[in-house]
Write a protein that binds this DNA or RNA. Sequence first.
DNA 1: AGAATAGTGTCTTTCAGACAATATATG
DNA 2: CATATATTGTCTGAAAGACACTATTCT
Lengths: 266, 266
Amino acid sequence: MQSEQQFLQNYDPSQYEHPSVTVDILIFTVADKKLRLLLIRRNTHPFQGKWAIPGGFLRMDESADDAAERRISEEAGVKNIHLEQLYTFSAVGRDPRTRVISIAYIATVPYGRLQYSAGSEADEAALFAIDGITGESLNMHPEKAAMPGDSSFILTGPEGEIITGNDLAFDHAKIIRTAVQRMRGKLNYTDLAFGFLEDPSSFTLTELRLIHEAILGHPLDIGNFRRTIKREYEAAGRIREKGLEKGTVGRPAMLYSFSQTPDGSL
Amino acid sequence: MQSEQQFLQNYDPSQYEHPSVTVDILIFTVADKKLRLLLIRRNTHPFQGKWAIPGGFLRMDESADDAAERRISEEAGVKNIHLEQLYTFSAVGRDPRTRVISIAYIATVPYGRLQYSAGSEADEAALFAIDGITGESLNMHPEKAAMPGDSSFILTGPEGEIITGNDLAFDHAKIIRTAVQRMRGKLNYTDLAFGFLEDPSSFTLTELRLIHEAILGHPLDIGNFRRTIKREYEAAGRIREKGLEKGTVGRPAMLYSFSQTPDGSL
DNA sequence: AGAATAGTGTCTTTCAGACAATATATG
DNA sequence: CATATATTGTCTGAAAGACACTATTCT
């Protein structure tokens, strides 16, 4: 029997053919009461000219979490953003070039912190508002069961240009649908929405409610929302009153500050 | 500018170094009122002699879902099992040989259908009961924040031998903890538990309750459980009465049959 | 009858949804 | 004061949790 050292010396990773591994980042933000997603226009084949989710190859010396952080820093110029793994897409034909499996991540970025090259030719990027995604049920097999209409949701660009999920590159419509459904499902029992706050140490409950409404795609009852948030967070000391807002129209709102849990969970 | 055809011809997948991609399958079952997991004892380096989650390399012509189905068929001799992607683990040092990322799947197998080589030397496999996993909160970053005690749960083998998460190969303790927490979190709003029924077309509510209790690790109120299941499933026509059980001790139980939804969701 | 298991009913508290009413700022 | 926004209160029905009680079989 060989020793562990001998084994490691004899081990040849090239004996198997390996797929490419990429990390795709769904960079979401909330602006003007709408959930929006950062897409980039592809300037190479395949799907040249189509809009796509930003991504990149996983380097050998970084975890997928690290790669996601790196890519969002490169693409949106922002660090210390809430990132969460969504799903790993691995259908055989999803990339026409070669075998590519993609680990998809959701990033929740406050609109004010987002930086991207809106106009530049080389790497054109734009925020698209998302509408028309229905069915909040959690799909256990995102790559199976492509229902008709799965890709029929609407994306509205910065100049009002409208495309649908079918106009996107690769299987990115499927990924976006999965992401929105996941966000909706987790909204009520996680801190997801807080990741979109411009300043978590000073926000109003109206601001937080508008984020929830943008993600869900429908309005919420104001009183019930306040009651629920205060019960879930204020009693536990997760949010705290910080004094009144100033210089706004109407009654000034109470400002709150939010405390992240150590691991970002619940 | 090159055409798409030219691009495809020029594309060289080997220009990047690729990690290995494996699929790991957490084969769960419920037997004797306990949640149990199929582990195999490694007979090669690294971690020779340690217990590990079964897995295998992703082939170039199969999706991760397909690979998971293939592996569970090879390892447990069973097909058409409920499979669900858990998480993709990709920390750099998780495999000492080379860079390996692992797409983990949860399989829910009825005990009676499970076949594995319990005694054979070549590929020793065993079912381990899982105890002592606490904190049902959904961890957003399973690979970060290794709390002390994360791997301190207890696994009890077929002969009563006891090991802890720390005795497992690779980062498999972390994977198991993530899986159990995920199952607990989804138990109440998915069909997860039904995957463990010996015969979904003929089961009692007591049998279903024992599955829930095994996953959660604590007893449930009998009346409340019945009420909730009947409200959620019987009203929607998802379960139907099939007549009385026969030949058992005590009052005979009503038998039910369960209808899977097309996509296996909710 | 007694043991064992299955199934029902009731009471209380919590929570979600709908909606009305009140409070405090600006112009 | 009119307008705009924030905040509180109230009512109802659904649902969860605790727990007592009844039903049907076998030995």
